[in-house]
């Protein structure tokens, strides 16, 4: 019974334990920080991000990107062809950081897990995870002039081109 109750030793143990826990909590990425890895260099943002948000590769599995990058001459009705060296480099960037790549983070795994193995969805907005994350957004918000379509990520997620989709950063234009 010697070391029970309030002793200096127990107080010290308690203080250290609380301190270590506080630091651990502070260091851990908040659940809100939806951060996806982005390709190094500017090629991806410059080529793909000039017409639409430079969608994080981790929003779709590699098989989706492979299909998309093999059909660039008819990219959602537009000709987005690239010179072959650029096309191959960007495809590699996408495959390396896709939702199903080996070091995918928790969100990417959830995105990947919600897509049937035989499907290669081309529209992020049609994936289960996107719908789940945006189910509270009413239709009239999407129709605002500065948003227009749910695929216009960067309209509400200002740092989408850096792979950052955290809820705290969301700014919905009027």
């Amino acid at each position: 019974m010697k070391d029970t109750g309030i002793t200096w030793k127990n107080l010290l143990t308690l203080t250290v334990a609380v301190g270590v826990t506080a630091v651990a909590i502070g260091q851990a990425p908040a659940d809100d920080d939806a951060i996806f890895p982005m390709p190094a260099g500017k090629a991806y943002v410059n080529e793909c991000g000039s017409c639409h948000t430079a969608f994080a590769p981790g929003l779709l599995p590699a098989r989706s990107w492979r299909k998309m990058m093999s059909e660039l001459a008819n990219h959602f009705g537009e000709d987005a062809s690239l010179e072959e060296p650029h096309r191959l480099a960007i495809l590699k960037d996408l495959e390396t950081l896709a939702a199903d790549f080996p070091h995918a983070n928790m969100r990417m795994r959830r995105i990947s897990a919600a897509i049937p193995g035989n499907a290669a969805p081309q529209r992020i907005i049609e994936t289960g995870y996107f719908k789940y994350m945006h189910d509270e957004v009413p239709k009239h918000i999407w129709q605002r002039k500065k948003i227009g379509t749910p695929g216009n990520c960067i309209a509400c997620h200002p740092r989408a081109n850096e792979g950052r989709y955290g809820e705290r950063e969301v700014r919905i234009p009027q």
Binding site: C51, G77, E78, K146, T149, N152, I154, A155
Partner: peptide
């Protein structure tokens, strides 16, 4: 401007 389809600024 704004892309007529993607609405990107």
């Amino acid at each position: 401007g704004q892309h007529v389809k993607t609405h990107k600024a």
